[in-house]
């Protein structure tokens, strides 16, 4: 459930189709995921999962797969 939720967050923040979002999607690999969009993505993750990411995690958030790994630290479980 949270994987789907995170996909929706990525799609909304980066303004891309959900079908583009796989574990391999990485920061700067597509034009839509630049530094500006990254901050929008962080804000959207904060909002939707009701957390506040640490700055270290903001910097570490380099892919969809990494995002899931980071969020588990905030007690958010993925399948």
């Amino acid at each position: 459930m949270n994987t789907q939720k995170l996909k929706s967050v990525f799609a909304e923040a980066l303004d891309i189709e959900e079908s583009f979002i796989t574990d391999e999607l990485t920061y700067n690999s597509i034009a839509e995921w630049d530094s500006v969009a990254h901050m929008a993505l962080v804000a959207e993750i904060d909002d939707q999962f009701d957390i506040m990411l640490d700055t270290d995690d903001v910097l570490d958030l380099s892919s969809f797969s990494k995002a899931k790994e980071i969020l588990t630290k905030y007690d958010i479980a993925f399948d």
């Binding site: 901050m39 929008a40 804000a43 959207e44 904060d46 506040m52």
Partner: peptide
């Protein structure tokens, strides 16, 4: 500023 920007930029 960093934390505020998360709430403002959105």
């Amino acid at each position: 500023m960093q934390l505020s920007s998360r709430l403002m930029l959105k």
